[in-house]
């Protein structure tokens, strides 16, 4: 080891010779270019376009200030979309996650039967949302589908749940739970398998019943996994789109719009770039806000 301090040219020379410089110059830029070009730049442009009324051709020239945002926040369909997103979050937190946790507790042990159930419950998650939507639109079809079979059996009139303003979104939430509970269950299973068996046995020796073990030992120990799953449920609720299109396409009379279907219907398909960008910006801010909250929350939970 030389103790004489290296001069700057010397250091540059060495870096060039051992290929470090080449490695950085060669291996890093592809990622940086792709990411900037297709993620960051479009996002930044969203922030600009949101203040224009523009159809996407030529240069945006018609500066409208906050008008796009005002129109959006004043639009009753947008209110409905927000409210639907909140409903999705609530269903995820209050129905889907408890269901997933209960099932995870039932099948987290490694046995052949449990492995089969795990596989079955996880299956919907890997299917395309669009296929799931199509399958369930058959199930809910009042003329042909399973719903028709049920009304038929009871001799009732054909009933189209997806055409019912009150119940259509409930049907959609059912599909969402069907599609995603297996994912949350898998997160919990991975966490539960990480809980040392000793702790469960120690609690049993001290007189804990199965439910006591769940409440006092297992759930507190998998709290980080529960937080992660809640985070994904909320971020996921913001993005629901594919499932809605084949089921209701946002209808009837816009009662099942979500933020992304709203963006698609009122921004993209009418080429209202400015308005759509404004919706995108709101979506972005919501995602950032949730991420920041999650960071705060999980840091506090860990330090406590």
């Amino acid at each position: 080891m030389s103790t004489i301090p290296e001069s700057f040219p010397e250091r540059v020379g060495r870096t060039l010779r051992d290929g470090r410089f080449t490695a950085v110059i060669l291996l890093l830029p592809p990622a940086l270019v792709l990411f900037s070009l297709f993620v960051i730049v479009p996002l930044a442009e969203s922030g600009r376009y949101a203040f224009f009324d523009w159809n996407g051709y030529g240069e945006p020239a018609d500066w409208v200030g906050f008008e796009n945002f005002e129109r959006m926040f004043g639009h009753s369909v947008f209110h409905q979309a927000i409210w639907n997103t909140i409903k999705l979050v609530l269903v995820s937190l209050l129905v889907q996650m408890p269901l997933a946790l209960a099932l995870a507790l039932m099948i987290y042990r490694k046995t052949p039967t449990n492995a089969v159930f795990r596989l079955i419950f996880f299956l919907p998650f890997i299917l395309a949302e669009i296929a799931a939507g199509l399958i369930w639109s058959f199930v809910f079809d009042g003329n042909y589908g399973v719903a028709a079979g049920i009304t038929h059996a009871f001799g009732g009139e054909p009933y189209f749940v997806l055409g019912d303003r009150t119940w259509a979104f409930v049907a959609i939430m059912t599909v969402i739970v069907w599609k995603y509970f297996g994912f949350h269950m898998m997160i919990y299973i991975a966490a539960l398998q990480g809980v040392p068996q000793d702790l469960v046995e120690a609690a049993k020796i001290e007189g804990a019943k199965t439910l006591d073990v769940v409440r006092h030992v297992q759930i507190p120990l998998i709290k980080p996994a529960i937080m992660v799953s809640a985070f994904f449920a909320i971020i996921g609720a913001l993005q629901v789109f594919d499932v809605i299109i084949p089921l209701t396409n946002g209808g009837p009379s816009n009662s099942t719009q979500t933020v992304v279907t709203y963006l698609y219907t009122f921004g993209l398909s009418r080429l209202k770039i400015g308005f759509g960008s404004a919706v995108g910006i709101v979506l972005f801010l919501a995602a950032v806000l949730i991420a920041v909250f999650y960071q705060r929350f999980s840091n506090r939970a860990v330090s406590r």
Partner: peptide, 25 residues
């Protein structure tokens, strides 16, 4: 640069879909 590249973890695809469409076009 690392933090910059991780920014993509934070927001959904759909947020930038319109400018993305223009970029591709």
């Amino acid at each position: 640069l690392f933090s910059y590249l991780l920014l993509g973890l934070m927001f959904p695809f759909a947020t930038a879909i319109l400018p993305l469409f223009l970029k591709v076009r």
